[in-house]
Computed example of a mutant assay.
Amino acid sequence: MTELKKQHGECGKGCINDTTIHVDVKNYYGRTLKKTSDLKSKACVTTSQPIPAFIRQALAKVHPEVTARYYGCGTVVPECLEGCRLLDLGCGSGRDCYMLSQLVGEEGHVTGIDMTEDQLAVARKFLDHHMQEFGYRKPNVSFVQGYIEALTEAGLKENSFDIIISNCVVNLSPDKRRVLSEAYRVLKDGGELYFSDVYSSSRLSDEIKNNKVLWGECLGGALWWEDLVQLAQEVGFTLPRLVTANIVTVDNKELETIIGDYTFVSATYRLFKIPDVSNNGCMVIYNGNITGFEECLDFDAWYTFKVHEIVDVDEEVASILTHSRFADEFTFQPPGTHAECNVQKSKVGTVNPFELVLQLDSTSASFGTRGCCGAQPQSSCSK
């Protein structure tokens, strides 16, 4: 796994070299997989879940050839996107980039980075098509060939992005710490890493990690979820906020035999680059001005903000909301401003995706089918 394949080392600038894993992943996604049906498991397939109408409409405008080369384990569409600069780690054929380019608008910008030439060729092929389809006078999407472990080497500037997304890609990297560190570096203060990925119930054996098919199928490189929490905080992010979680069904007897007793989930987390988490808790009122979330905002698995409802949030959530792009979307008031009977109490939720799935199973809820205002722990939102 540590063998190096020199591909970019001639420049003398310390560029990252291809590890054996990088080469194997490039071959798997560039040559072995030509369409979604070529996958050998269900790990890299988005779970079925209700998608808001405005996102469905954006996806419907993405060219079918781009969509056919899409592989992902979740829907990575954070809220409050208008005018934002957004980066997609491991953008592949560009499906999420083109969908999100409509949501950030012509004044926003989406950059996709991927190391696989074949995938980027598909993405770039339809750039003009999509800009014409969206009615934009100038492109608001660009694609960069490079490694998610070396964003600055790929020409992406520090402190330059409002949001970073990633859809089932971090698990494919041999150096997750470096991925998170680079993401932290290029995010602006107050920026967010909002990403879906596959996680394991415990640290994986070498047999599983060394299996090329399992790695390519997003299982062999899956992090133990506790390692994600530790790595995220070590590089400077806030404690990860768990948004969604679904059990991964492999549905391949040969691969299931190799996996044995390990279990996997696909989960979405949001990590924030917040310079100061020393805020006291406070009362917040959601103003209802975010497109697509006018009635309520499911911030994570534990906090649902219903328009004009008073919510008591802890100091971490208060810091996130006041130091991020969400600051203008809420009214902030000191604790104790309102009568206790009118206040939704702050919640302490798990960051363990397996625990969340069990909790939802125990209440006959399916987290994979939750949309805004849908079933979730202690949600006060209803349709």
Rank of each mutant, 00 (worst) to 15 (best):
F330W: 06
E309L: 05
C296Q: 13
I320S: 02
N279I: 00
N287H: 10
A267R: 01
R270D: 07
C296G: 14
W302Q: 10
I285S: 08
Y269H: 06
A318M: 07
H338K: 12
T331W: 06
F332V: 10
N289C: 10
F332Q: 08
F330M: 06
T291Y: 12
F305H: 04
V317A: 09
D328K: 14
S266H: 08
G281V: 06
M283F: 06
G281I: 09
F332G: 04
Y286N: 03
Y269K: 04
L321G: 04
E316L: 15
L271R: 02
V317E: 04
N279R: 13
V265G: 01
Y262L: 04
A327T: 12
D328L: 11
Y269G: 03
G292Y: 02
D298S: 13
K306N: 13
F264H: 06
E309Q: 15
C282L: 07
I274M: 05
F299E: 03
G260Q: 09
V265L: 04
K306Y: 08
E295S: 13
D314L: 05
F326M: 11
I285Q: 13
N289I: 10
A318W: 02
D312F: 06
V317I: 15
D314S: 07
L321H: 03
I274W: 02
F264T: 06
T263L: 08
T291M: 09
Y303H: 15
D261Q: 11
F264I: 03
Y269L: 05
V317S: 01
D261T: 11
V265A: 14
H338E: 13
T331C: 09
A327G: 01
G281D: 09
N289Q: 15
A327C: 11
G292V: 04
S278R: 13
S319Q: 06
I290F: 02
L297A: 07
G288W: 01
V317T: 13
D276Q: 07
G292R: 07
T304H: 13
I310L: 11
G288E: 05
F299G: 01
G281F: 07
G336T: 09
D261I: 02
R270V: 06
F305R: 05
T291H: 10
Q333M: 15
S278H: 12
F326E: 00
K273A: 04
V307K: 15
A327F: 10
T268D: 00
D276R: 12
E294Q: 13
H338M: 12
D298K: 08
Y286I: 01
E295N: 14
D328G: 12
V265N: 05
D312Y: 06
A301P: 02
N279H: 12
H308D: 14
N289G: 11
I290C: 04
Y269P: 00
Y303D: 10
G336Q: 10
Y262W: 02
I274N: 01
I290E: 00
I320Q: 04
V307S: 10
A301R: 09
L321Q: 08
N279D: 14
N279E: 14
D312N: 15
D276S: 12
I320D: 01
T263Y: 00
F305G: 03
T304Q: 13
D300S: 07
E315F: 11
I290V: 15
G336F: 08
F264A: 06
T322A: 14
F272P: 00
H323F: 09
T291W: 05
G336Y: 10
Y303T: 08
D312V: 07
D328H: 11
P335I: 06
N279F: 12
Q333E: 15
